[in-house]
C-alpha cells in the first residue's frame, strides 16, 4: 500500500476548545434565474457553527451577529461558501464542445442573522448556460462537525428537488429536468 503524505496546519492554538452541541444542520435553497442567467439562493447555517468552521480557534464566535456591509468577515464568509458549496455544471455555449464544465463562483450579496441562532447568507453567481451533468458539493461545516447534515433544495423551471449531503456523501450528481 503506498504511503500518502498528508499536510496539515501546525500553528493553530495548542488544543482547540471543545465545542459540542447537537444542532448540526445547514440548508440551501438555490434557484436558476433563466432571465438573468444567474443562480440565486440562500444558505442557512447555525451562526456559531459557521463562525467556528471559518475560524476553528473560535476567535470569530459572536462576531457574525454584528456584521455590517463593511465588515471584513463578509469576504471570509464568501470564500468559505465558495470552498464548501460548489456547483459544477456543463456550460458549453458551443454545441461542438459538450464536455466543457464550469465551477460556480458565488458572490455574497448579504447576510442576515436571526434571533433563533441562524445566519442566512444570500448569494448569486452568473451562469450563462446551465447544462447537465451537474455535480453539487456541499460539505460546509462538516470538517468541524462530523455529524453535520446539509440539505439543498434546487429549483429549476418551477420544479423543486431536495438533496441531502453527509460527511461521507458530500458530493452529489444531479440531473436537471426539462
Amino acid at each position: 500500500m503506498p504511503k500518502l503524505l498528508f499536510t496539515i496546519l501546525v500553528h493553530l492554538s495548542a488544543i482547540s476548545n471543545s465545542f459540542a452541541h447537537e444542532y448540526y444542520f445547514a440548508y440551501a435553497e438555490i434557484s436558476y434565474n433563466e432571465l438573468q442567467q444567474k443562480l440565486e439562493g440562500t444558505l442557512i447555517f447555525t451562526t456559531h457553527d459557521l463562525e467556528r468552521s471559518i475560524e476553528p480557534k473560535g476567535t470569530l464566535i459572536g462576531k457574525f451577529e454584528k456584521l455590517d456591509e463593511t465588515s471584513a468577515e463578509l469576504k471570509r464568509i464568501e470564500n468559505y461558501i465558495n470552498q464548501h458549496f460548489q456547483i459544477i455544471y456543463g456550460c458549453a455555449l458551443d454545441s461542438l464542445a459538450p464536455d466543457v464544465i464550469c465551477i460556480s463562483q458565488f458572490l455574497l450579496e448579504g447576510v442576515v442573522t436571526q434571533l433563533n441562532g441562524t445566519i442566512e447568507c444570500y448569494i448569486s453567481a452568473a451562469i450563462p448556460a446551465l447544462y447537465n451533468p451537474i455535480q453539487i458539493k456541499f460539505d460546509a461545516l462538516m470538517e468541524q462537525f462530523p455529524g453535520q447534515q446539509n440539505k439543498l433544495t434546487f429549483i429549476y423551471r418551477q420544479q423543486k428537488e431536495t438533496l441531502s449531503f453527509l460527511l461521507n456523501d458530500s458530493s452529489i450528481y444531479f440531473t436537471l429536468k426539462p
Binding site: 496539515i8 493553530l12 495548542a14 488544543i15 476553528p56 470538517e143
Partner: peptide, 15 residues
Amino acid sequence: VEKMENFKSVSDLRK
C-alpha cells in the same frame, strides 16, 4: 467515525 479530513491541524490530532 473518522476521516483524515477531520484533522486539519496538529491541534486536532493532539486533541
